[in-house]
Amino acid sequence: MSESTAWLVIAVIGAGTFAFRFSGIRFFGARSMPEPLLRALRYVPAAVIAAIVAPAIVHGGPDPGFDTDNVRLFAGLIAAAVAWTSRSVLLILAAGMGSLWLIEWAL
């Protein structure tokens, strides 16, 4: 992607995101929003975030796939276990990156 295209992409995403942020406050209160839309929107965060996380862990590393060589699978599991009990970003980064480096170093 050329640099000017990248700027354009970012400008369009910025404008669209602002429209999303503005639309609810300005045009409809929570009560007048169509119920099916509200219901679907409730599941956007869970579905989309999981769709980002899962492939990044399974297919993101130098040894992708469900393979015992894929260190990210193990480091990801450890980090997920920590994330389940703590909401500290620093702690989870430390657990995930730490176990990734530790396993790589040990092998």
Binding site: A56, R87, V89, I92, M97
Partner: peptide
């Protein structure tokens, strides 16, 4: 492999 920080940060948002 700092790219691995990406899914880690999202794990925090997921739970």
């Amino acid at each position: 492999q700092v790219g691995f920080a990406l899914p880690l940060v999202f794990l925090v948002l997921l739970v």
